[in-house]
């Protein structure tokens, strides 16, 4: 057993857990935060993506102990005091989810992709950049639309910054 401490969505948590517990299960089973999903055992599907210190990461392939002392954000922390994040709004508006199982990881990956580009995304950016996430329901069509839309909202006015 080992003591693992981290900040999850801005809240300090600390638990004594088995040494080999994965971050995904630390969140789901120790903290009861079941919004982060596990869809595979080979690090392929991306249902488990969270942000660690602002960068997306597959929590199914990360030991909780590896992120000791880090700041973790999950789907539960994406909306800001009840105000939906642009990616959440776009997913709902464009019907970018059906069963919703891939959705948390999908949105967490998308936010990192959009932030990392510093400009609105093209279809090619999205299809290449989201390659690590799988969805079985949507055929990706509406997810691509939603991520592009959110990228425009998140980078509104960023055109100038990019030109500079």
């Amino acid at each position: 057993m080992t003591i693992v401490s981290m900040r999850v969505n801005g809240v300090e948590v600390s638990r004594e857990v088995p040494d080999n517990i994965l971050l995904a299960y630390f969140l789901r089973e120790e903290l009861g935060m079941t919004g982060t999903h596990v869809g595979c055992d080979t690090s392929q599907c991306g249902c488990c993506v969270v942000h660690v210190d602002g960068v997306s990461l597959k929590s199914c392939t990360t030991l909780a102990a590896q992120v000791n002392g880090c700041s973790v954000s999950t789907i539960e922390g994406l909306a800001n005091e009840g105000v939906l994040h642009p990616i959440q709004k776009a997913f709902a508006a464009m019907h970018a989810l059906q069963c919703g199982f891939c959705t948390p990881g999908m949105m967490m990956s998308a936010v990192d992709l959009i932030t990392g580009h510093g400009r609105p995304l093209t279809e090619e950016d999205v299809r290449e950049g989201m390659e690590g996430n799988l969805c079985r329901c949507t055929g990706y069509h509406n997810i691509v639309k939603a991520i592009i839309t959110a990228s425009h909202e998140m980078h509104a006015g960023a055109g100038d910054a990019q030109a500079a």
């Binding site: 789901r28 935060m33 079941t34 919004g35 982060t36 999903h37 596990v38 999950t74 789907i75 539960e76 994406l78 909306a79 939906l84 959440q88 997913f91 709902a92 508006a93 019907h95 989810l97 919703g100 199982f101 959705t103 948390p104 949105m107």
Partner: peptide, 19 residues
């Protein structure tokens, strides 16, 4: 119309079996 079920699913409040 936008789906009613999305509100919970986009905020991590879905109720899947393993939850």
């Amino acid at each position: 119309l936008q789906r009613k079920e999305d509100q919970r699913l986009i905020t991590g409040k879905g109720r899947f079996t393993d939850d």
